[in-house]
């Protein structure tokens, strides 16, 4: 099945081709559903001057937060970055640029980018600092902002199960931004907990069809919990 076999066995191969100055789209919400081993590989590679597009930037010492330690990130595109003291320090020092983007707009930028739509109008952010410098237009009497889509040189994605063809399903709310990032990377790398046989996943239940996926790797995950809350 060589033609559609997307599986790679080393993280070195998984992130092969990543270069300084590239844009990387990352799935995950907080620490939930983040491609933790692919992030660790980017740290090992010491690639610099990266633009990272991700809803959040991990926490100090885990997730995307580890890429700040050696100043590998020059720009973050995120909706919320409040969990990370090092991020705030580098931002205030001018070592890091951040483009704060409303969460739904960020999701749609990736979705549209992956779907070949270069820009879209949304009411989100009209009259706020997000609207500065952007075109606006009225439709049916309401004002909308023109937001440009996002694509990346790489997309790094965390799935639950995949087959060799790169068909992926996500587990619970670890889905979040992952299927959107997966569509919008020139090279999309998915790390999963489990590789299953081709044909084992129900075709109607696949979240990310293999056409979007270039590489699949099986990893083991810490799955750190950011805010453990129980009823007891």
């Amino acid at each position: 099945m060589a033609g559609f076999d997307k599986v790679v066995t080393t993280y070195e191969d998984a992130m092969s081709g990543l270069q300084d100055g590239m844009t990387v789209l990352a799935g995950g919400f907080g620490l939930c559903g983040i491609p933790e081993n692919l992030i660790a590989e980017i740290k090992r590679l010491q690639t610099k001057n990266l633009t990272i597009v991700s809803n959040n930037c991990g926490v100090d010492g885990f997730g995307l937060g580890i890429l700040l330690e050696d100043k590998q990130v020059s720009k973050m595109v995120s909706s919320y970055v409040g969990e990370n003291a090092l991020f705030e320090k580098q931002l205030l020092n001018g070592e890091l640029d951040v483009e704060l983007t409303p969460q739904g707009t960020l999701a749609e930028k990736m979705r549209a980018g992956g779907a070949g739509i270069p820009a879209f109008y949304t009411a989100t952010g009209v009259g706020t600092p997000v609207a500065e410098g952007k075109d606006t237009r009225f439709f049916n009497g309401r004002e909308y902002l023109l937001e440009e889509s996002i694509t990346g040189d790489f997309a790094i994605v965390k799935g639950w199960k995949a087959d060799r063809y790169g068909n992926v399903i996500y587990r619970h709310t670890a889905q979040n931004f992952n299927p959107l990032a997966a569509t919008a990377g020139k090279i999309t790398v998915v790390e999963v907990e489990e590789l299953v046989e081709v044909g084992e996943l129900d075709p109607a239940h696949i979240h990310t069809p293999g056409i979007y996926v270039d590489r699949v790797i099986v990893g083991t995950f810490e799955k750190r919990i950011e805010n453990r809350t129980t009823s007891e």
Binding site: C32, G104, L106, M110, W160, T173, L180, E226, N227, T229
Partner: peptide
């Protein structure tokens, strides 16, 4: 379950009849 959180990043449960989907 680390894969089951809410927008406040708290661990939660899902009720019977719930649905789960992408951010878009």
């Amino acid at each position: 379950d680390a894969d089951m959180i809410n927008a406040g990043k708290q661990t939660v449960t899902a009720v019977s009849g719930s649905s789960i989907f992408s951010s878009a």
